[in-house]
Nucleic acid binder design. Structure first.
Lengths: 145, 145
DNA sequence: TTATATGCAAACGTTTTGCTAGATT
DNA sequence: AATCTAGCAAAACGTTTGCATATAA
């Protein structure tokens, strides 16, 4: 198996079938998926897949920078495709049904603030800030009735 | 047992000894504690306490609005005292040692942005936003060497 | 050919639950 | 007295690990 993603990408390790299948799930399904959900989707056409393989490869793809990892409301880790072409965005999380909506409003203004904050905080607390994580929690249209 | 907190507070349910002991841990120890840590601290002077009681009461106190609940880097849920008098703040999280530092820099500017964002997002996505959660993840002074 | 990844099952750490005795109102 | 809560142990849940087999390079 040799098919990867469209653009060039150096991979530490071997590019295997399960690895590609997992990535395909995210390519065909822009969203925020937990391991179990990825596992189920692959299992439909590839019943031989193991859940541990999914877990190992989600972590692998995350380390390779292909997937972003989140801990939202629930206990499960969620992953989304880390598409360089994609706009910087954050998440609206419904605390009732768990729905996650991406948004990119006010990003320029937000990024400016984040940069100022990172500078100030790095200096003051000696932290080397690598990333930030901003979530809005509330009720979605369906759940707020 | 009748002792509660300084200010008035209506409690749904019964105010029990373990409930007070758990709250005391947070009053005497401003910080972000996981269930196990709270359990250990109480056990020192009250060996009879059960871990399940701690879990149940952390959730209880969170529902009562006395504790804030976070899911940081690790798998454990962390809680902190929700002190109304306290400044609005966010968290710097060290991804290596798990240390959590509170900060309140740029809060006015941040709150202004959050308010604008909440208004825009509520309108556009039909979300009723209840709260936001902003974390900076990186390496602390000790871990970045 | 050889290191790496897979699949399975068992182990793991955290959190929840069922139950009976006990405490609070 | 009625009801809610505690403590214990067992189960549940998401995730990780050990190991023999299979696969990519």
């Amino acid at each position: 198996m040799r098919r990867r993603r469209g653009r060039a990408f150096k991979c530490i390790g071997r590019w295997t079938v399960p690895r590609q299948l997992i990535l395909d799930v995210f390519i065909n399904n822009r969203g925020h998926l937990a391991a179990e959900e990825v596992f189920m989707r692959i299992k439909r056409n590839n019943p031989g897949i193991g859940l541990a393989t999914v877990y190992r490869n989600l972590e692998f793809l995350h380390r390779q920078g292909l997937l972003n990892r989140f801990k939202f409301h629930t206990d499960r880790a969620h992953y989304e495709l880390n598409d360089d072409d994609r706009e910087h965005h954050h998440h609206l999380i419904c605390r009732k049904c768990g729905k996650v909506i991406d948004y990119s409003e006010f990003v320029e203004r937000e990024l400016k603030l984040m940069k100022d904050l990172e500078k100030e905080l790095s200096h003051k607390h000696g932290f080397r800030i690598e990333r930030h994580d901003l979530n809005f929690i509330g009720l979605c249209t369906d759940c707020k009735v």
